[in-house]
Simulated scan of single mutants.
Amino acid sequence: MDTTQVFSAVSSLAALQWLVLIVAPKWKVTQWLIRFAVVPLLLAIVYSIYITGFFGIQGGGFGSIQEVRILFSNDNLLLAGWAHYLAFDLLIGFSIIKSAQDKSVSHWLVIPCLLLTFMFGPCGYLLYQMIQKIKSQR
């Protein structure tokens, strides 16, 4: 599989996981996927495979924005970075779902948080923290 196909596959897999988080958070299958972090684990495997190219990139690294730009100019490392984002955003989504269910936060309030986390990671987490703080003060 080339990087374009893998990109499409991991993006579709993550989108499907987000869909079940949003539409059916209490479904047994969704709860199982969350409990065992199946999709983030699969994304971690993809990440681990594609990050191996990091060591061969001349001038690339994490010490400056220019070094990071060099890393992401390589499709294998760009795909690794994408899998990294997808996995960690999902883990944040799982955390939001678990917390909301434990604290009886309405899923209608959680949906915008999940959508934001899916699209803009930390923004969704921030929104959920604000909702949770407001709810706990009541």
Results as ranks from 00 to 15, higher is better:
65 I>R: 12
135 K>A: 13
107 H>P: 03
129 Q>E: 10
134 I>F: 14
75 D>M: 06
65 I>C: 13
91 L>R: 05
122 P>V: 05
112 P>Q: 07
130 M>A: 15
42 L>A: 12
105 V>K: 09
58 Q>G: 14
94 F>W: 10
76 N>A: 07
119 M>W: 15
130 M>P: 09
58 Q>N: 12
114 L>M: 07
126 L>A: 11
36 F>A: 10
11 S>G: 15
29 V>L: 12
65 I>W: 12
33 L>N: 14
39 V>L: 00
88 F>W: 07
48 S>T: 08
3 T>S: 11
110 V>M: 01
20 V>A: 09
73 S>L: 04
137 Q>R: 04
48 S>D: 14
99 S>W: 10
30 T>D: 06
115 L>Q: 06
36 F>Q: 08
94 F>H: 09
21 L>A: 07
124 G>D: 11
32 W>Q: 15
126 L>K: 05
84 H>I: 00
16 L>K: 08
70 I>N: 04
6 V>K: 09
68 V>S: 03
58 Q>M: 11
10 V>N: 12
104 S>L: 12
109 L>Y: 01
87 A>T: 03
104 S>W: 03
84 H>S: 05
57 I>W: 00
101 Q>S: 08
115 L>P: 02
29 V>G: 12
102 D>E: 15
71 L>H: 00
15 A>R: 09
57 I>M: 05
77 L>M: 03
4 T>M: 13
78 L>Q: 05
16 L>E: 12
132 Q>W: 13
48 S>W: 08
84 H>E: 00
45 I>L: 14
92 I>Q: 07
43 L>N: 00
135 K>S: 14
3 T>F: 03
42 L>N: 10
41 L>Q: 15
57 I>Y: 04
27 W>H: 15
2 D>P: 06
12 S>L: 04
87 A>I: 02
133 K>T: 10
134 I>G: 11
73 S>F: 04
111 I>P: 00
70 I>F: 02
128 Y>V: 05
93 G>W: 00
112 P>M: 05
68 V>W: 02
42 L>V: 12
111 I>R: 04
135 K>D: 13
7 F>S: 15
51 I>Y: 10
53 G>M: 02
37 A>N: 09
73 S>Y: 07
117 T>Q: 01
137 Q>H: 09
40 P>R: 06
24 A>F: 11
58 Q>I: 03
84 H>Y: 01
87 A>S: 04
77 L>D: 01
78 L>F: 05
129 Q>A: 11
62 F>H: 04
72 F>K: 14
67 E>F: 01
72 F>M: 08
133 K>S: 14
137 Q>V: 06
129 Q>C: 11
95 S>D: 12
91 L>A: 04
43 L>H: 10
73 S>M: 08
14 A>K: 06
126 L>N: 10
36 F>P: 08
9 A>G: 15
13 L>G: 06
94 F>D: 13
93 G>P: 07
123 C>G: 15
18 W>V: 07
48 S>I: 05
92 I>W: 03
133 K>E: 13
7 F>Q: 15
136 S>K: 07
125 Y>N: 14
81 G>R: 00
86 L>R: 07
17 Q>M: 01
85 Y>N: 10
98 K>A: 10
64 S>P: 03
95 S>R: 11
103 K>V: 08
127 L>A: 05
76 N>P: 10
22 I>A: 10
115 L>G: 07
19 L>M: 15
43 L>C: 03
92 I>H: 07
